[in-house]
Design a protein around this nucleic acid. Structure first.
Lengths: 224, 224
DNA sequence: GGACGGCGTAAAGAACGCGTAAAAACAAGC
DNA sequence: GCTTGTTTTTACGCGTTCTTTACGCCGTCC
């Protein structure tokens, strides 16, 4: 099931899209403005965003920027403006596609399919395994020697971020901003506490970690 | 450098695109028909395809299908037909984007950027190799004879700056201001200490460096 | 030839970041 | 309102990293 976040300030259009997309098998999360859209994107698993640029509370470009700060979810922009300048700005801000009104529903559906086909193709790896534990990204579950390991929400967020970037060094700032929010970018003690907990739960020898590595002063790294 | 395969049967348009894209830093591989396009795509490394649907020798949709049979390279379709049916068909055949003529060059460039950003994000793996060590810029890791070499934050900053300017002379001031900050622009002694440490970790004979070279009185240079 | 400036090496102390444990604050469910 | 689970603080020992100091080398310039 594909979940679409639809952002539009006009109730009729929002409702029409909601009905039509639902009729074509999509789960629709409606949002009447940018604030609720950004909030919804963080609390729910969104597969693709359909965004009308004309929003009452904030600039549509800021919504794109807000999303692109932490996610690569496909964004399809709807706009009444045909000017090429608007298109360039939206695309460069991080949008994936730009559709001008009026548009046919079948065209939007085709572009939705094209967008989900792309992103779906590259995220076809919902499981990451190591010699000592297995992380099931899709089901948000962790197994160690066949046994399921309980994770608190924060523990899971940290682990997921690291596991989704295997081998890559993830800076402490990045972890803190993505898990706790930008205001906590300097609360590095949190990380030490949670890394210790993760290691206690997942590593054979928590004092000598093999997969959840520290790069002193730089960040943390997940080694598969 | 991004390579674009441009497929169009009209010589003027093909030539215009070739000139304009080249002027914006793209390498252009031109193809006047579907057959040569498919052939070119198999013999050369193509980063993105710009495809006009109106071709003399075969249906544009078949070109899309022919490409999608073996590659996920982004395809941007150009077409004079505004009908939504055509768009749906092209997108469902595997195209990533659909632009109707007439279109502005800046819009096409923006869509090119959007397309390469998506695919480039997953393949862009900047690695710099020398005979003695390998620097993985993306993952912030250094290998020497297969073994990972630990770097402190300051060591990494200096090394990264040098490696990102291969062969170029980097002045001591530049290194000091970018790594330690403008206030330290005259603390050249720091550099000697850290260059010595880098050489000890990376060079076979630290006393006779081959890759991390000193230009007396001027700065340092990384020789690949 | 000797003084000088720039460079490389080594080794100290100081400052900082990390890991660990445990207590306090907070939220949620019954 | 209490219990349970989770997050946030607090405290401290330890190792790493940064900065500083000292000294020897090699050229150039007086």
């Amino acid at each position: 099931m594909t979940t679409v976040l639809v952002v539009d300030d006009e109730p009729q259009i929002l409702r029409a899209l909601q009905i039509n997309l639902h009729a074509h098998g999509y789960t629709v999360v409606p949002a009447p403005n940018g604030t609720t859209a950004l909030a919804a994107a963080q609390t729910q698993a969104i597969d693709v965003v359909v965004l009308d640029l004309g929003l009452p509370d904030m600039d549509g470009l800021d919504v794109i920027a807000g999303l692109r700060g932490w996610t690569e979810v496909p964004i399809i922009v709807l706009s009444a403006r045909h000017g090429s300048h608007d298109k360039v700005e939206a695309l460069d801000a991080g949008a994936d596609d730009y559709v001008t009104k009026p548009f046919g529903l079948d065209e939007l559906l085709a572009r939705l399919r094209a967008a989900t086909r792309r992103s779906g193709a590259q995220t076809a790896e919902p499981r990451v395994e190591t010699a000592e534990f297995t992380v099931d990204l899709a089901n948000k579950q962790v197994f160690r020697q066949g046994e399921a390991v309980r994770m608190t929400p924060t523990e899971w967020s940290v682990l997921e971020l690291l596991v989704r970037n295997p081998g890559r060094l993830v800076s402490q700032q990045q972890i803190l901003t993505e898990v706790w929010g930008p205001a906590y970018a300097k609360e590095t003690h949190y990380l030490r506490v949670y890394m210790a907990q993760l290691r206690r739960k997942l590593e054979n020898d928590p004092a000598a970690p093999v997969h959840l590595l520290t790069e002193a002063g730089m960040g943390y790294r997940f080694a598969p």
